[in-house]
């Protein structure tokens, strides 16, 4: 699904990540951990094409990133749902239109019932008409999750999706992710939260990638 071959990346010439070779397979469930500033968000941006590798090869759904046109990248993003760390929304549109945005930009109309179900699934039924700036951090993250899955993507990338959530809400969100994974969506979650990883491992066969010294390693069973 997404393959990294000896990929390296750095900002402004200084290397950050290097020698990454790994595969994110269909239906897999991965966590990505590492200290702040290790490059977790950078890794995700490489996955959905916001960044291009400085060296090595990334291919997504069989297509080489280096050969993708800008329209190809747009199409890639319709197959990969992303919960961004900073949850960017269109502040002038109410929540429900923000959640339906991936459909809108693809020229499709949202099914009203499905949209309602999705919003109640993330517990935001009461805020459908709210503008994003008026939402709490946790509400924004749940809205971002709803937006990320509305296209029924084949893969979901989530960057610190529980960063602003209390433990109870984190577990709820984890349950949503596990549910999606059971329906066949490949999932990659970048997080600091080791408790969340432990909780997940009790439910699915999740694997943990750790960024250490600019390398991505498969973490052992100690977690």
């Amino acid at each position: 699904m997404i393959e990294f071959q000896n990929v390296a990346h750095g900002y402004g010439g200084s290397p950050l990540l290097s020698g990454m070779t790994l595969t994110l397979a269909p239906g897999s469930f991965h966590f990505l951990t590492g200290p702040s500033g290790a490059g977790k968000s950078t890794f995700l941006k490489l996955c959905y094409g916001e960044l291009t590798p400085v060296a090595g090869r990334i291919s997504a759904f069989g297509q080489d990133r280096a050969e993708m046109s800008r329209d190809d990248v747009a199409r890639l993003r319709r197959r990969i749902g992303v919960v961004h760390q900073d949850c960017q929304f269109l502040d002038h549109l109410p929540l429900e239109e923000n959640v339906a945005l991936p459909l809108t930009v693809a020229g499709r109309a949202a099914d009203a019932t499905e949209l309602k179900e999705l919003l109640s699934w993330v517990g935001l039924s009461g805020q459908v008409r709210s503008l994003p700036p008026s939402l709490s951090g946790g509400e924004r993250q749940r809205a971002a999750l709803a937006r990320a899955v509305i296209m029924s993507p084949e893969m979901l990338l989530a960057d610190e999706p529980t960063g602003n959530l209390d433990w109870e809400m984190s577990l709820r969100l984890l349950t949503l992710l596990v549910e999606l994974n059971r329906m066949g969506t490949a999932i990659l979650v970048a997080t600091h939260d080791l408790n969340l990883i432990r909780a997940a491992k009790a439910q699915v066969a999740a694997r943990v990638l750790r960024i250490k010294g600019g390398q991505v390693q498969m973490a052992g069973a100690e977690l």
């Binding site: 959905y48 916001e50 800008r70 329209d71 747009a74 199409r75 890639l76 993003r77 319709r78 992303v82 961004h84 960017q88 929304f89 269109l90 945005l101 991936p102 930009v105 693809a106 020229g107 937006r147 296209m151």
Partner: peptide, 12 residues
């Protein structure tokens, strides 16, 4: 930027 991130084509 947000529109690009959710898969909007340039022309859109």
């Amino acid at each position: 930027r947000t529109l690009r991130l959710v898969g909007a084509r340039d022309i859109y």
